[in-house]
Every structure is written in C-alpha cells, then in structure tokens.
Design a protein around this nucleic acid. Structure first.
Length: 205
DNA sequence: ACCGGGATGTTCT
DNA sequence: GAACATCCCGGTG
C-alpha cells in the first residue's frame, strides 16, 4: 500500500550494498556476478546487463598491462572503487576495481537497463531515440550517469557516497551470454565479456 | 538491416 | 605519429 510503495520508490531502500569482499576477487569472477546488480548514482538506478573483465599484468588489452601510470593508477588501488578513463577524444568509460590494492583487475560496465531517474538520463543523452539507447554501451552508460574524470577513484562501498552497487534479490543469470570482448586488438580471443541473455540494453546483440 | 568514415584529444611509442 | 576498452550519421540494399 502507501508505505510499501513509498519505501520501494526510495533508491536507498532497494537492496543491500555489495561489500568489500565481493570486489576482492579476480575480475573474471566478479564480472558475471555483477550481472543483474543495481547501479545507484545519485537519484539514478540502472540494472547492469553487460560487463567485460580486464586483468592487469596478464592481459594485453588492459590499461594496466604495461604497469602503473597516472591514468590507470586507480586500477592499482583498493577494490570497490570506480576507475573512469577518457578515450577516443570525447568519451568516458567506467570500471569497477577488483582485487586487493596492488593488483590491477577491473570490470568495464558496458550496458545497463534504466530503472529510475530516466528524465535525467534523457537530458544527458539528447541524441538517444529509444530507451535502449540510454545505457547500451560503455560511453553511453557513463554519459547517462554523468560520469567523468572527476569521478575517477570514487568509492562504491557503503551508502554515504554518491555511488554504490546493490543486490536487490535478482540473481545473476544461471547461464549468462559469454563471448569475446569488443573494440580491442590485443587479447581479442579471450572470452571475457558477459551479458544478460535477451536484454535490449546490451551494446551488441 | 548493415556498413564506412569522421569526430576529437590524451597517452604512449 | 599512431593507437585508442566509442558513438553517431549518412550511405546503400
């Protein structure tokens, strides 16, 4: 009734924040586990439907492959933080940092289903024509959420920060889609991309 | 639907 | 200089 619907419409009541130990694992394990989790950014809620894993020193496609630099420093930091980078001269993309500090492992957020705060997303993505144009791609997702370099390194643990990721009870798919990563040259044979089968908010179907 | 190319600037060779 | 974890638009079928 009234109280129930009121509490359900509150972003912060939607689920339990993922704890540090969730992120303290290899990106190839965290990535499929992030499917169907809910990303909260300010008043925006979006369900993660597509991810890719990037694994530091063993992965030629990872920004961290050739060691720590100014740009990728956040990847080498503690887990449960956001690594945001600039690419193609105009786009920002967001990763979730995994593994303990010192090990560069991260999950690229590639696609999400908008749940709340759609007005805000439409404003930030004026060229989007359909709802599935809002977050169906890493740079689209970052733009819809208003993420830029200013957000590099922000924490996802606890409810006090601007962003977090919560589990609202919907488990990851028992058989997620799985294939090679998109838009890379090196390491293009590795099947480190996962998605929610059938979702219209996946970048490529 | 599918495909080709331009935009735009930081990072690394 | 080249590459780049991309997106958008305008062509064609």
């Amino acid at each position: 009734m009234e109280p129930r619907s009121a509490s359900r419409s509150s972003p912060l009541s939607r689920g339990r924040v993922l704890p540090r130990r969730f992120y303290q694992r290899d990106a190839r394990v965290v990535a499929p586990d992030l499917l169907n989790k809910v990303l909260i950014s300010g008043s925006i809620l979006a369900r993660i439907v597509e991810v890719e894993a990037y694994c530091g020193s063993s992965d030629p496609a990872s920004h961290a492959y050739r060691g720590k630099t100014r740009r990728n420093a956040t990847m080498f930091g503690p887990p449960g933080h956001l690594y945001v980078y600039f690419t193609y001269g105009m786009h920002w993309c967001a990763n979730v940092v995994c593994m303990p500090a010192g090990v560069a492992s991260a999950v690229l957020l590639r696609g999400a289903e908008p749940l709340e705060g759609l007005e805000e997303m439409w404003e930030r993505r004026p060229r989007a024509r359909r709802e599935n144009d809002l977050c169906s791609g890493p740079a689209k997702l970052a733009q819809a959420l208003g993420l830029t370099g200013a957000d590099d390194g922000i924490g996802l643990l606890g409810r006090s920060g601007r962003m977090c990721i919560v589990d609202d009870g919907l488990p990851p798919p028992s058989m997620p889609g799985n294939g090679v990563r998109i838009g890379i040259r090196e390491g293009s044979d590795l099947m480190w991309r996962w998605w929610v089968p059938g979702s219209r908010h996946v970048s490529k179907r």
